[in-house]
Nucleic acid binder design. Structure first.
Lengths: 233, 233
DNA sequence: CGGAAGTTTTAACCAGGGTTAAAATAAAAT
DNA sequence: ATTTTATTTTAACCCTGGTTAAAACTTCCG
């Protein structure tokens, strides 16, 4: 009950921290070049920001060897991701945005909402755990559940699977997946798997569909049986 | 259907243009000092921005004699004010914000919502004409109705008036007004007016209330009879 | 081991939006 | 009519977040 809702870090800082968080989630330490690429700036700009972040104890920096978030940095990242995912869900549920549209709008808003706003939409959505792509929403105090599911691309013929999560890659990919019936919670059965390119033939609600290996790598699933025990929280 | 939703002007530019618009609405041309004060920066900073705005044909600047918005500038100002007031109403209606809280939150968001978002909340609110303080919401194509009502402070004993609009001054003032029953659409009767300080004694829903001249200057009213003919849009 | 190649960092610079201090101008007052 | 006062503008500077070009460091390979 002490802070008055002022933002502590600039939007740029928040963007970098968030980018580092995401890169860190596949591969231990984050390189300057990868970070620069993700942010859309030059490596030189990234280096300068890295110094700034390190001075503010948001990251540990071993020159020439990359960067890792400190605990403080992770807290900042998770707060922004919380904003982002709550906003995505809110836009979807309350304003009818499609799951391919929510990311762009949430990106614009995530740095600018107050704690009050966050709290209100959280309550309005009844304290949700996942966003419209099935990604977990961090809690107010910076905890996050692990990502759910294994890639559909790694499944084998005969398996019956439920879609739990879809990587929020491009709006086009999301729209295409939706168009062939691959939404969250949908159950699919794997009919065939091409031996060479890994393309899958699926049964989706009685309709036969094909997805290439790349797209199938964006869809995360869980064995049908495992799901029955978890049920509603 | 041509622009991709990119913002054309910086947030700073938008803030200055909005400030000029508001100052212009009482007193013809806007002085550097007043503008600086409104923005919360030094006159030197305002001068620099004024040059920038003039180069972009958003204002006409007569050095040493002040500034006026061009038509283009007015369009920009009204677009931001539209965002602001739609947001205020949305926060109030959809998220339960009090009328004393909406201004601060809308201030943060008004620069960052897309046309899509604007369109969606506009539809969701069923194309409203006024915000929670009774201020008119500009249309999508930059038209705005004149401010409604005359100051309560100028009314005389015996008059029966309906509250149409309340100046969005401070959250405290708004909270106080609400606490004594002075909301929008409420009908009051003027019982007395102090000859010297202009303080009013009112009948508000059967309760007797006093408001000083300053506060009464923030409340805008219309003669009760005039209202009956207008009715619901 | 010694380059060659790729990555990272440094250096010098730019633009936007701010500051303070000083100079220029307008308005008011003796 | 001239001086005083207040306002506005200019000048010189700061900080943030970017750029390009060059230098420093790793790494990998012959």
């Amino acid at each position: 009950m002490s802070d008055t809702g002022e933002r502590i870090f600039s939007q740029a800082v928040e963007d970098y921290v968030k980018a580092i968080y995401k890169l860190q989630n596949e591969g231990q330490s984050v390189s300057t070049t990868d970070l620069a690429k993700k942010i859309g700036a030059t490596p030189a700009a990234a280096t300068k920001m890295i110094k700034h972040l390190a001075e503010n104890r948001l990251i540990d920096h071993t020159p020439y060897y990359g960067v890792r978030l400190t605990l403080a940095g992770e807290r900042v990242a998770l707060e922004i991701i919380r904003h982002h995912r709550l906003l995505e869900l809110y836009l979807h549920q309350a304003l009818g945005y499609g799951w391919d549209e929510v990311d762009a709008e949430a990106e614009k808003l995530e740095h600018h909402i107050s704690e009050e706003f966050e709290e209100r939409i959280d309550r309005m959505l009844d304290y949700p755990r996942t966003d419209p792509h099935g990604d977990p929403i961090p809690t107010r105090d910076g905890l996050i559940e692990p990502n759910r599911g294994k890639p559909l691309a790694e499944s084998e013929p005969g398996e019956t699977l439920m879609i739990l999560r879809v990587r929020d890659s491009s709006p086009e990919a999301l729209r295409y997946l939706a168009s062939i019936g691959l939404h969250l919670e949908v159950v699919v059965r794997v009919k065939e798997k091409q031996p060479l390119d890994g393309a899958l033939t699926l049964d989706v609600n009685g309709v036969t569909r094909s997805v290439g290996r790349e797209l199938a790598g964006y869809v995360f699933v869980e064995d049908r049986k495992a799901r029955e025990e978890v049920s509603v929280p």
